[in-house]
Structures are given as C-alpha cells and as structure tokens.
Amino acid sequence: MNIFRLCGDLSHLLAILLLLFKIWKTRSCAGISGKTQLLFTIVYTARYLDLFTSFVSVYNSVMKIVFLTASYGTLYLMFYKFKPTYDHNHDSFRILYLIVPALVLSFIIVHVYTVMEILWTFSIYLEAVAIMPQLFMVSRTGEAETITSHYLFALGSYRALYILNWIYRYYTEDFLDWITIMAGIVQTILYCDFFYLYITKVLKGKRLSLP
C-alpha cells in the first residue's frame, strides 16, 4: 500500500458513494447510464469472486464488499426504485460491443489459464471501457449535472492515481503487471476529454455543457 493506491481507492469509493447519494437525494437517476452501472456490476462481480479463494487483507476484503454492495444497490435504485426517472432513450450505447471484445481478449492475453484468472482479466478489460455508455450519454444530451460531473471526475481520477501507484511499485518492489497497466492507461485516456471540460467549466462554477 502506498499513498497513490490509497488515494486512488478513496477516490473510487467517493465516486461510488457520490452516485448513490445523488440518486437518493434527488430521487432520480436522470443523466446516469444504467448500462455503465450494469457493466461496473459485472466488473466487480467477475473480479471479486476471489473473496472466496484468496485473502489479501481486511482492507481489501471490506472494500470489495462495499464496491459489490454499492453497485448492486445502484442497479436496484436505477432499475427498480427510481426506474421512471431512468433516461433510457439517451442510454443507447450497445454494450455487447464492449463485453464481447473484452471477453475474447481475456482468453488471448491472460496470465494463467484458469477460470478465476480469465474472469479477473475480463473484469480488467471491461472496466477499462465500462464508462463509454456514460460518456456517450453525456455527449448525446450535451450536458451533465454538477454532481454527476464530480462523480465522473472522482471515478476517472481513481485509475489515473493507480498509474502513479504502478510506477511507484515498479521502482520500490519490482511489481509489474502489464495487463492492468495497459488497461488502466486506456481507461484513463477515455476520461481525458472529460477532465478537460471538468477543469475548464465545472471547477469555475459552470455547468458542464457541450458546445
């Protein structure tokens, strides 16, 4: 554990809680992509099956359980409790275009050929692109609520902080995992456009709207 990893995890946690808070407080999931949330739930489910097979630390296990619970909770709020507020007309990205390539790639580039390892790898690849339906939705509606923007910023920062963590770990403990590094870089690049808009608009008190 180092400061970059800790900040990354806290940023990730903040993002997930911000989203739940937003939906609960406004009693609405307008502007949130249910498809992205579904993808994240698939990601956590596939990756954190290792809760049953390998123990790292109490911290890791607690965080995994929180991420899993929060993501299923978000789906419950979006597709059940506040379903009428879900803007599915604008959530039209085809997620099979993300799931199938991620699955295929996880059979091609993987550390070890075991079911658990392929599921873990699949989750890493899918996570890298899981935000695309959400970004697509923002581009279709041309705007995002401020709290949604904070959510996206925290979510994007998490993997960027993980990249610093991997650089740090490479120098301090010779740790190098090309699968997570390459996927993490792709994931962070996808947010670059958004980061730019966030810094130039939202941080100056303006609403995030596209020209």
Binding site: H12, V56, H111, W120, Y162
Partner: peptide
Amino acid sequence: GEAIMKHDEL
C-alpha cells in the same frame, strides 16, 4: 497444483 495468481489491488 493449479497456479493461482494473487491480485492484491482492487
């Protein structure tokens, strides 16, 4: 035995 990768990140 079967090789198990231990992933220590989230």
